[in-house]
């Protein structure tokens, strides 16, 4: 019962904030709505029994990415701080006309239907999983997986993070002769 309520609230937060993110014109508000979406996704992880992933999501996004985004908005806020009429319904006029939109809609419809067909066939043929409501802790299992099965990806991601750290520091540094 708790899981259903938590799922409902998280889903509402996720979807509502995602749509508000797309609809609002103010980029600062968009960042705050992104925060809401990410917290909602963390709640959805919690309903799936993924406690460690949910906490990592909050840790990385709330503590890091969203604050970084807000900093970037403030450091780049200039003459066009509020973006020009690019909300969900009033897309910029150069983005296409009714023919391109209808064509894209048709293509995406075919694409989605094909995918739904594929996924449903997979779901139907998959062996029925013995399903319990128990949600055991995933921390120790995840630790074993990261250090045994996925150790190469783990180490590569640490190299990636180091590269990103140095790269970001070098790119954002102002040139001396300017």
């Amino acid at each position: 019962m708790f899981v259903q309520i938590l799922f409902g609230l998280s889903a509402l937060l996720t979807v509502g904030c995602a749509i508000a993110l797309a609809a609002t014109k103010n980029i600062m508000h968009s960042c705050v709505f992104l925060l809401g979406t990410l917290l909602g996704v963390a709640g959805l992880y919690a309903t799936l029994g993924a406690d460690f992933v949910a906490t990592a999501q909050i840790m990385v996004y709330v503590g890091g990415v969203v604050i970084l985004m807000l900093f970037a908005v403030m450091l780049t806020g200039g003459k066009d701080f509020v973006s020009k009429a690019q909300n969900l319904l009033g897309l910029a006029p150069t983005m296409g006309n009714k023919w391109t939109y209808s064509l894209a809609g048709l293509v995406s419809l075919v694409f989605i239907l094909t995918n739904v067909k594929l996924i449903s066939s997979i779901v139907k043929t998959a062996p029925a999983k013995t399903f319990t409501n128990e949600m055991p802790s995933t921390v120790s299992q995840l630790g074993h997986l990261l250090i045994k099965d996925h150790v190469l990806a783990f180490e590569l991601s640490s190299v990636l993070l180091l590269g990103a750290l140095i790269g970001a520091a070098i790119i954002a540094r102002p040139k001396k002769n300017q």
């Binding site: 990592a56 996004y61 990415v65 970084l68 780049t76 996925h150 990103a164």
Partner: peptide, 25 residues
């Protein structure tokens, strides 16, 4: 394994945000 994948996605998103915002600045 799905949890591990989403952990890596979170890591990559953090790296991407850092570099992307540095480029923006």
């Amino acid at each position: 394994d799905g949890h591990v994948f989403s952990l890596f996605i979170i890591v990559i998103a953090a790296a991407e945000a850092a570099v992307g915002l540095a480029i923006v600045i």
